[in-house]
C-alpha cells in the first residue's frame, strides 16, 4: 500500500495523510505484555459484533408480547441465515460478559487501576454496569417462559438493593408488574439508550486509557513495543481468534429460543439464571430467612452491593498496590467458580 520512500504514494494513503498517522502510531509505545493486554480490545470487538448482529435481528423482531417470541422463531427458522445471526448475537453476548470480567480481573491483579489511572477504572466500571443492563434487557426480549421468569426474579432481587431498591424494581419492570410495558421498556433500552451510552463511554474509556499511557505507568520497567505495527498486529491476531471462536460456536452450537411466555403457567422446575449470575443466585437461594436480624436475601444483596462499591472505590482503598488486592480477587473468582459449579449440581 505504501511506497518504500515513505511518501504515502498510494491513492488512499496520500488522501488521508497515512504517513503522519503511521509516524504518530510508531512513536507511541505500549508495554510488551502477555495475552491479558488484549482483553480490552477483544471486548470491544465483541461489542461491535453485538451491534452488528443486533441491528440485523432488529429488522425482523417485534417488540410486542403477542408477537415477540413468534418473530424470534421466524428469524431463527425462516429468515436466511437467521439462526446464524441470532446465534452470533447470543454467543457474543456471553463471550462479551466473559471477556469484560476477565479484562477487569487482570486489571485488578496487575494493579492497573491505581493512580493515575482512576478514570480508566471508573469508566470501565460504568461500562460493566451498562453491559449488565444490556444483558438483563436482552434476556427479556425473546419473551419466552425463561425470559418472563428472569424478568420477574431479576427485578425482584433488585428490590433488595439498599436505598434505591424500590425505584430500581419499578424501573426495571417498566411499572409495578412484569407486563407488556416491561417488554416495551426493555426493548427501548436494549436497542437504543444503552448501546448509545456504551458507545459514548467506550470512546471516553479509550481516551482515558490513551492519556494514562502518556503519564508514568507503574510498571515502566517493562519492555515496550510501538503501537504500530507490533501492538496492532498482535491485537488483530487476537481479534481474528475471537471471531473464529464466535463463528465456530454460532455455527455448531445452536442457542434455544425456548417456548413462548405464558404468565398463567407455573414457572419451570429448577429454573436457572444466566451463568454469570449462578453463584449469586445460589447464595440467595440458600439464604436463611433471617440473617443478623435482616431478611436473608435482602442481607446478601446488600452485602453484594457493598462488595460492588468497594470494587468501584479500589483506586481509593488501595493506593500503593498491595498484594492483598490480587489475592482477594483470586479468592473471589475461585469462590464464584465453586458456587456456580455447585449450583449446577
Amino acid at each position: 500500500m505504501m511506497g518504500t520512500d515513505g511518501q504515502g504514494s498510494s491513492w488512499l494513503g496520500a488522501r488521508i495523510g497515512w504517513d503522519a498517522i503511521r509516524a504518530t502510531l510508531s512513536a507511541q509505545r505500549v508495554a510488551r505484555r502477555n495475552f491479558s493486554h488484549f482483553l480490552g480490545g477483544i471486548t470491544l470487538l465483541l461489542f461491535l459484533l453485538e451491534v452488528g448482529s443486533g441491528v440485523l435481528v432488529l429488522l425482523y423482531y417485534r417488540p410486542d408480547v403477542a408477537q415477540a417470541h413468534a418473530s424470534l422463531e421466524r428469524i431463527v427458522g425462516e429468515v436466511p441465515y437467521g439462526d446464524l445471526i441470532r446465534n452470533v448475537h447470543a454467543w457474543s453476548s456471553d463471550l462479551l460478559v466473559l471477556s469484560l470480567v476477565a479484562h477487569m480481573f487482570t486489571v485488578v491483579v496487575r494493579g492497573s487501576f491505581r493512580s493515575p489511572r482512576e478514570l480508566s477504572w471508573w469508566s470501565g466500571q460504568a461500562l460493566l454496569v451498562l453491559c449488565i443492563g444490556l444483558a438483563f434487557t436482552g434476556a427479556i426480549l425473546p419473551w419466552s417462559q425463561e425470559a418472563y421468569l428472569q424478568a420477574r426474579v431479576g427485578s425482584e432481587l433488585a428490590r433488595y438493593v439498599p436505598f434505591v431498591g424500590n425505584w430500581l424494581h419499578h424501573f426495571l419492570r417498566g411499572g409495578d408488574e412484569v407486563t407488556s410495558s416491561t417488554l416495551q421498556h426493555a426493548f427501548g433500552f436494549h436497542v437504543a439508550a444503552l448501546p448509545a451510552a456504551v458507545t459514548a463511554l467506550i470512546f471516553l474509556h479509550l481516551f482515558f486509557v490513551q492519556r494514562r499511557a502518556a503519564t508514568t505507568p507503574r510498571d515502566d520497567d517493562a519492555p515496550t513495543m510501538p503501537v504500530y505495527p507490533d501492538f496492532l498486529v498482535r491485537q488483530a491476531a487476537a481479534w481474528t481468534a475471537t471471531f473464529v471462536v464466535v463463528m465456530t460456536l454460532a455455527i455448531f452450537a445452536q442457542r434455544s429460543v425456548g417456548v413462548a411466555a405464558d404468565p398463567r403457567l407455573p414457572s419451570v422446575v429448577g429454573a436457572r439464571p444466566p451463568w454469570y449470575f449462578l453463584a449469586f443466585h445460589h447464595v440467595v437461594r440458600v439464604a436463611p430467612r433471617d440473617l443478623l436480624g435482616m431478611d436473608g436475601a435482602r442481607f446478601l444483596v446488600a452485602a453484594m452491593c457493598g462488595v460492588g462499591l468497594a470494587v468501584v472505590a479500589l483506586p481509593l482503598l488501595d493506593r500503593r498496590g498491595s498484594r492483598l488486592t490480587a489475592y482477594l480477587a483470586w479468592i473471589f473468582l475461585l469462590a464464584c467458580a465453586l458456587l456456580s459449579a455447585y449450583a449446577l449440581t
Binding site: 420477574r152 398463567r264 403457567l265 414457572s267 436475601a297
Partner: peptide, 12 residues
Amino acid sequence: SAICTHLQCVVG
C-alpha cells in the same frame, strides 16, 4: 395472586 412471595416465580 399466583406470584410466589419468595422471589416472584409463578406458582401452580
